[in-house]
């Protein structure tokens, strides 16, 4: 049994009273000491998935319509939000994309960490402050005993994201979900933040889910990868297996779309067409309108999983062909 098991998760958003599917039956697991990367383009459902796991969909027009999310064997979807908070309170934490809007600008960062600490543990203010300084040191903020009294606007974007990580870590979570944690950051800062996260994992054994649109970030930091397209995981496997033999035309197209720094490419092999919009109905494989090798079969029949090597699963009728 893995730490987190998501099975056949369906999520829909209500638009004018009509439920439009966003996530269409995805399954994955993450275990201690493991980093899972979920990659996809806008609207593929990756962020909805993370919010669903965190139980943050309440009060939004988004509904979980089917499936199960189990943490340590406990079915989360059957808990009331109160029970959920009691059980889950400090076992899961999330880091968001924009560190500025996630921090309250009128409070010192130290006070924000202290508050988050004291919400989850009964410790004295003094002990909490000491722990806050420790945490800031852990995320490599220079001069933590001074910086603890800074306001968010006095820090750079990278430092704020590190403060967010410190806050996420304040309750010693067993699972950390990072939704586009470095998208708003410069590459040099991104590198530092990603290194920090894997360092912390080595030390604490936390399970991490990184959600990103950047295949490079995922490839460099994750043990496992799930590629999402229009609400489905179209290709999943260990990072090594997957990038060794990309077997879905979408993943392949995505990779070919990225201009690389290490050699020249005259023209990028772009995926034609556009990212499907919410509510657009597509028969068979949702990627068929943009796929270079689509056939009548792809329009008629939704592909199931084809296994390439070990647990490298691909939803494509022609996976074997693409892989070879």
């Amino acid at each position: 049994m893995a730490l987190l098991e998501v099975e056949n998760l369906h999520i829909a958003v209500s638009v004018g009273g009509v439920l439009q599917p966003v996530v269409r039956g995805i399954s994955f697991t993450v275990d201690d000491n493991e980093t899972l990367g979920i990659v996809g383009e806008s609207g593929c459902g990756k962020s909805m998935t993370s919010l669903a796991i965190m139980g943050l969909l309440e009060g939004t027009p988004v509904r979980i319509t089917d499936g199960s999310i189990r943490y340590d064997g406990t079915e989360l979807l059957q808990l009331s939000s109160k029970q959920r908070r009691a059980i889950m309170g400090n076992r899961m934490a999330m880091i968001f994309q924009e560190p500025m809007t996630s921090l309250n600008p009128v409070y010192r960062i130290g006070d924000q960490i202290i508050e988050s600490l004291r919400q989850h543990k009964s410790i004295s203010k003094k002990a909490a402050r000491a722990r806050a300084i420790e945490l800031l040191d852990l995320v490599r903020i220079p001069n933590p005993s001074e910086r603890v009294d800074s306001f968010p606007h006095q820090m750079s974007g990278g430092q704020r994201q590190r403060v967010m990580i410190a806050m996420a870590l304040s309750c010693d979570p067993k699972l950390l979900i990072a939704d586009e944690p470095t998208t708003a950051l410069d590459v040099t800062v991104q590198k530092e933040v990603l290194e920090l996260m894997s360092d912390l994992q080595e030390r604490t054994g936390t399970a991490i889910i990184i959600i990103s649109h950047d295949l490079g970030v995922i490839a460099e930091t994750c043990d496992k990868v799930s590629v999402m397209y229009r609400g489905k995981i179209v290709e999943a496997g260990t990072t090594e297996n997957l990038f060794e033999r990309l077997a879905h035309p979408y993943t392949r197209g995505l990779l070919n779309s990225i201009p690389v720094v290490d050699h020249d490419v005259e023209w990028l092999e772009a995926i034609p067409g556009r990212v499907p919009t919410l509510g657009e109905e597509l028969s068979g494989c949702a990627f068929h309108p943009r796929c270079p090798i689509a056939t009548g079969l792809c329009i008629a029949k939704t592909p199931g999983d084809t296994y390439i090597a070990g647990n490298h699963a691909v939803k494509c009728h022609y996976a074997d062909q693409v892989a070879s």
């Binding site: 590459v187 040099t188 991104q190 930091t221 990038f243 070919n256 290490d262």
Partner: peptide
């Protein structure tokens, strides 16, 4: 710039980019 960067900052930028190790798929 890309094959023989001289300035330390250029090198730092280039080395910070995450790279995907994969077989050539082009």
């Amino acid at each position: 710039i890309f094959e023989n960067p001289q300035h330390a900052y250029t090198r730092k930028l280039l080395s910070a980019i995450p790279r995907i190790k994969t077989r050539q798929v082009n």
